[in-house]
Write a protein that binds this DNA or RNA. Structure first.
Length: 317
DNA sequence: AATTTATACAACCGCCACGCG
DNA sequence: ACGCGTGGCGGTTGTATAAAT
């Protein structure tokens, strides 16, 4: 026997909201607030709706200062950067874009941005096609911590000019901090966050610190909780890994692959090393994107072993 | 003009974490 | 410690509209 539903789906209205319903919900919340209980809200207002539906309608459409459509290039870049960095954590991405909802960004990514990025990608795939390897983290054994997952180096970016003072991912340090908190590091110098280094992060060390990455599929690596600033939510790397699109994984896996269509993401970021772009032709993904590092052979079990992290990477801040 | 296909986005579904009793 | 109710989240579906045939 399953758990009871939050409402009787047969006796509540579903589907698009009418202007009258919107008006009722909006005016009530503006005057009285939600009362901290969405489930109890509809009867108070006289709405024959599920509480969850009311919450969604308010958060995604009725609440003040919501922007719809008209995503700017800057917003595109932020979404792309964060998606590449942390995957489909839409609520976190939305938190960096004032006025945008996670639902909006998710829809925008799925319907437009993804196509904008991958639409012109060649069909050609490398020999590793089909291997479900998460390449967002790489393993370095060139350190004193045995096997520990490392995030690949971020592209070298110029600071993104923002028009206000809201906390944003406006430089590498923010993204670095986030990714480190998620359970990895960029180099030997980074201290992975754990109870020893920061008692505020009571993470599951049995997952994070296990020294057996060498023999587990990369996409099974787990992560630490994210901190309170980002919503006090706990995430694990399994979820993050599984949320990355296959397209992105395949692109990053194969460092020989050229990526038509991704130029827009990088040209505006003004990659410091533009020497490779002077030919006028397509850039090699490897030369264009520091995310892509040479990968060691992957055996038939889908395991990935050995040094991946490049020795000539710049030392992170 | 009618039909089919593609696109955009609102809304729903189900799972999971958290707080409270 | 446990169970329950709820909020929050990401994935998916449904529907209206536009574009193509």
């Amino acid at each position: 026997m399953g758990r009871a539903p939050c409402c009787d789906k047969n006796n509540v209205k579903r589907g698009p909201w009418s202007p009258e319903e919107d008006s009722k919900l909006k005016s009530y919340i503006e005057q009285n607030g939600t009362g901290g209980n969405w489930i109890a809200l509809p009867p108070k207002i006289g709405l024959n709706r599920c509480g969850k539906s009311c919450r969604l309608r308010w958060l995604n459409y009725l609440r003040p200062n919501i922007k719809h459509g008209g995503f700017s290039e800057e917003e595109d870049r932020i979404i792309c950067s964060l998606y590449i960095s942390i995957g489909s954590r839409w609520s976190i991405i939305a938190a960096q874009l004032p006025g945008r909802t996670d639902n909006d960004i998710k829809n925008y990514w799925n319907t437009r941005l993804k196509k904008k990025l991958f639409g012109k990608q060649r069909q050609k795939q490398g020999s590793r096609k089909g291997k479900e390897i998460n390449s967002n983290m790489v393993i370095s054994n060139n350190n004193n911590n045995n096997q520990f997952p490392c995030w690949p180096e971020l592209p070298i970016l110029q600071p993104i000019p923002y028009s206000n003072d809201e906390p944003r991912f406006n430089d590498h340090s923010s993204i670095r901090k986030l990714l480190i908190k998620l359970g990895g590091k960029f180099s030997d110098e980074d201290q992975p966050i754990n109870e020893a280094t920061n008692p505020q992060y009571p993470m599951d060390n049995s997952l994070l610190m296990q020294p057996i990455y060498q023999n587990i599929p990369i996409n099974m690596i787990s992560s630490a909780p994210i901190d309170n600033v980002l919503g006090n939510a706990q995430y694990n790397m399994d979820r993050a890994a599984s949320s990355f699109t296959a397209e992105l994984e395949h692109m990053i896996q194969n460092n020989q692959q050229k990526l038509d269509g991704l130029e827009f993401l990088y040209e505006d970021y003004m990659l410091i090393d533009k020497s490779a772009s002077t030919s006028g032709g397509n850039l090699d993904w490897e030369s264009m994107n520091p995310f892509v590092l040479p990968l060691p052979p992957i055996n038939d079990e889908g395991f990935q072993q050995g040094v991946i992290f490049q020795e000539n990477n710049t030392t992170p801040q």
